[in-house]
Design a protein around this nucleic acid. Sequence first.
DNA 1: TATCTGAGTTTGACATTTGAACTTACCTTA
DNA 2: TAAGGTAAGTTCAAATGTCAAACTCAGATA
Lengths: 160, 160
Amino acid sequence: MSNSDNRISAAPIDLDDCGMAKAAEMLGDKWRLLILREAFYGVKRFDDLKNDANIPRATLANRLKAMVKDGLLEGMEYRDGTARARTEYGLTARGRATAKILLAMMYWADEYLDEGKTPLDMISGETGAILDLAFVGPDGQVVAAENILPRIHSNSRRDK
Amino acid sequence: MSNSDNRISAAPIDLDDCGMAKAAEMLGDKWRLLILREAFYGVKRFDDLKNDANIPRATLANRLKAMVKDGLLEGMEYRDGTARARTEYGLTARGRATAKILLAMMYWADEYLDEGKTPLDMISGETGAILDLAFVGPDGQVVAAENILPRIHSNSRRDK
DNA sequence: TATCTGAGTTTGACATTTGAACTTACCTTA
DNA sequence: TAAGGTAAGTTCAAATGTCAAACTCAGATA
């Protein structure tokens, strides 16, 4: 039972200035994350997304529209044989850059949810070595997660 | 306009076997992410969380209960001066390990959402060097994100 | 006895989500 | 030319979730 000496009543950074909070707004949704997962694997079509990730039709249509507006996905025309043109959805640069986030989630779940590991490793395209996600300094030194600190810039909390 | 030659109609890994999908289930919620953010900064009390992250009372109560059940947070008694004991919420090991995920989100938002950088750097506790999140091999070599590949283990897709 | 405080719960209006059925636009086959 | 097929949605009504505001609860204080 602690006392109040170590009470912290607010984060040092305003929600509006916090990238993490903005990301939570844009990515803090189960369906969006699952759609990004499918997109990384190359699944692009409405019905494929719907069937593979078990997303209800209406929900999928909503999310795709919103994610295109948010610049995570882009719609592209495709044509299957002689069939008429339809739309498929692929990652934009912004969407593709969420890879580290999704992989951080995979590493976390594999290590902390004690339900067995995802049958997938990320490997180096050059050497084939199995990769981990880690904090690294400017000279490439790896720093353990227990050994990192936040440094907050001055004037971070907006004056009212 | 592409043709159907490169169609991928399903991910190579079943949803049930996918750590990323499990993480999406547990972390794919804006409020949970914001609560974790506050928890990392050391904000622990109900009203502080509510006020600092702008979470509606009922929603916060729901999320705290669920996150304790999911093992992300733990409730602990505290006593403020002579006041009666109340509950505050702190990170468990599982919750604390989401740091890489939240920081990956921060790095992503700062780089890709063109709305200004979070006024915070992660630094090495030893050297003070500014850190980045990167893929590293077993010998500590950094591998660029464009240069990584997934290697999927055999028998990944459950036979029906 | 009445008041205060932090941590919830309740309420009732509103919004979102869902599975199932329907629609749309075009292609194919009879 | 009519009937049927197909992928990508839209629409519907019921169930669920969200929200602000009001209320409750348990003790401490006046």
